[in-house]
């Protein structure tokens, strides 16, 4: 047991560096994916153009239907064949942003549907324009409704960053692999890595739960 603790402590600097990179991947992919998802969700929900709606629904379904790892491989290994070579980092960000946008748009669409239709009708009756209705009435409420779900989703995105090991990005799982491949103490090192993932995810889940109670109508 003392060996395990001593080893764990010696691995922590490498694992924490990996954890930091995982969090950075999560942050950047959400930073790009959230606004894209918000726009996708809102436009899909509110557009009166059927072809546009079908197109956006198709994009959303594709983003949700394709496993993130497949998208990542398409970008990382597939695009170089057409002379587009992205670094591992930007390949991951592109893949996760695409997936995030799809899932976030669904969360946002659900939130928008949760806003009583009477409010929109009231805005229309008062002659308030669409943009202002979205900015002043829809968006604040949709955000409030969807925030707990989005925080929960962010935790899932954080877990998904472990997929980045497939393209040798130095995130947490990769750091654990590297340690395991040298020490062959896979069980121990993955227990420590798993604990680090769990700490972040449990904290995020608790935060999401707390937010849910604070944002209930």
């Amino acid at each position: 047991m003392s060996d395990f603790l001593a080893d764990s402590v010696s691995w922590l600097p490498d694992l924490l560096r990996g954890l930091g990179h995982s969090l950075w991947l999560t942050f950047v992919s959400l930073l790009l994916g959230l606004p894209l998802g918000l726009v996708l969700g809102y436009v899909t929900e509110r557009t009166t153009s059927r072809p546009l709606r079908w197109l956006l629904v198709a994009v959303i379904e594709l983003a949700r239907g394709l496993p993130a790892l497949v998208v990542l491989y398409l970008i990382y290994y597939g695009l170089p064949s057409v002379e587009v070579v992205l670094s591992a980092f930007w390949s991951i960000i592109a893949a996760f942003t695409f997936s995030n946008a799809g899932y976030v748009s669904e969360i946002v669409r659900g939130a928008i549907r949760g806003i009583p239709a009477g409010q929109l009708e009231a805005c229309q009756a008062l002659g308030i324009g669409r943009a202002r209705t979205f900015a002043s009435v829809i968006a604040p409420q949709a955000l409030r409704i969807s925030t707990p779900s989005l925080v929960g989703y962010a935790a899932i995105v954080f877990q998904s960053t472990s997929l980045a090991v497939a393209v040798a990005e130095p995130e947490l799982l990769n750091a654990a692999y590297n340690i395991g491949s040298i020490t062959f103490q896979y069980l121990q090192v993955f227990i420590v890595a798993g604990a680090l993932y769990a700490v972040v995810v449990i904290a995020a889940s608790r935060f999401a739960g707390w937010l849910a109670t604070r944002t209930q109508y």
């Binding site: 010696s10 395991g180 491949s181 040298i182 020490t183 896979y186 069980l187 993955f190 798993g194």
Partner: peptide, 21 residues
Amino acid sequence: MTRTTSTKRRAALIAVAPLLA
């Protein structure tokens, strides 16, 4: 990390290690 001074070619990783067995 445990420091090794000797050689090791590689340890390619396929399986999810926590479920190694």
